[in-house]
Amino acid sequence: MKTAQTIYENGNHKWLALVRDPSRPGYLIDTNEYLVAVGDDAILLDPGGAEVFPAVFSALSAEFDPRQLGKLFASHQDPDIISSLSLWLEFNPAIKCHISWLWTSFVPHFGGNDETFVAIPDAGTDILVGGQRLQAVPAHYLHSSGNFNLYDPKAKILFSGDIGAALLPPEADGLFVEDFDRHIRHAEAFHRRWMGSDRAKRDWCSRVSAMDIDMLCPQHGAIYRGEDVKRFIDWFANLEVGVLKY
């Protein structure tokens, strides 16, 4: 089962990473889910696919009262991101799912109705969680055409969705990046193939370089901390993407 690990805590403001499920079947890609709790309000970032719902729910409820979960954030529309939506709605039919406007009529195929979705405009928006303002940061075409990161300016954490993702072998699946050069090898093929636009990549690198980030948290793989955040942005800026060679 997944475990919930606290990656940030300051008073009633907390970030939990729900990670690493050793019992996960090999045919399902591993995913990281993050919970941002501020007081008695919380938002779950990229809640995951339906098949990993038991692991996510049990890890979350071990550390947090799931009745307080009223918001979901979906970086984009993929099944490993949000196909568990209908299951979360079983617990709280009033739950709100924040997602790019582009996907608000596609994702209801996974569940929900016109009351469920809060459309994020292309330029991004703020999402209020327990009085804390989180920022939906545009990351379009990286990889999805309607794609957002979520930045917490107080915690200085950027949830980066698929950006920064790495497909780690079991012997190197620590929660944090410890050796950047060794780690980034597991991220390279993923970024070359999945990130479709060099221009969008440069825009994103320029945007996030100006932000004060202590942790960059991807949806797959390990979390970048401290200097590794800048190392990653520089590495990504120089990577050739959107070119398939076969």
Partner: peptide, 24 residues
């Protein structure tokens, strides 16, 4: 399918989470 996933969730949940799954 939903039922199967909830049964799996019940099997691995404890405390408040388990009570929520049972109620659901």
């Amino acid at each position: 399918r939903v039922e199967r996933i909830f049964q799996r969730t019940l099997a691995v949940s404890k405390g408040q989470g388990r009570r929520m799954v049972e109620a659901c």
